[in-house]
Amino acid sequence: MDTNTNVNYKSEYAGYWKVLVGLLVLTAVTFVQPGMFLTDYTFAAQLIIGAIKAWMILMYYMHLKGEKLIGAMGVFSLFLVAVFFIIVIIDVNNFQFGDVSHITSPAK
């Protein structure tokens, strides 16, 4: 466990604030994006911004930088989630019973 002798308080302190500013800027971007750029792809744009924010939080606030083992495990979990997404999305996109399905349009 690190002790007070090897904590570089000043630079870490500044680091926290810098990341905060970055996150605030990105949050602002979140708000102006739908009216400014990529307006047809709001969803994708929002998720990309979210991913950048998440990356910053993970690396700097959660100190994941340099954690090889934990990082690899994290990548593995995200990979699994991605696989679940891909397979389920393949399934929905090839749904064959849309015409007779009850759930895709409200029954009157």
């Binding site: 979140t30 009216g35 709001t42 939080i57 993970l58």
Partner: peptide, 24 residues
Amino acid sequence: ALYWDLVHLIWVFVFPYFYMIGAG
């Protein structure tokens, strides 16, 4: 502290997914 960051991290995705997709 890690836990708290995780809670924040979840919000980072919950927020745009619910609030922002219809903002356009």
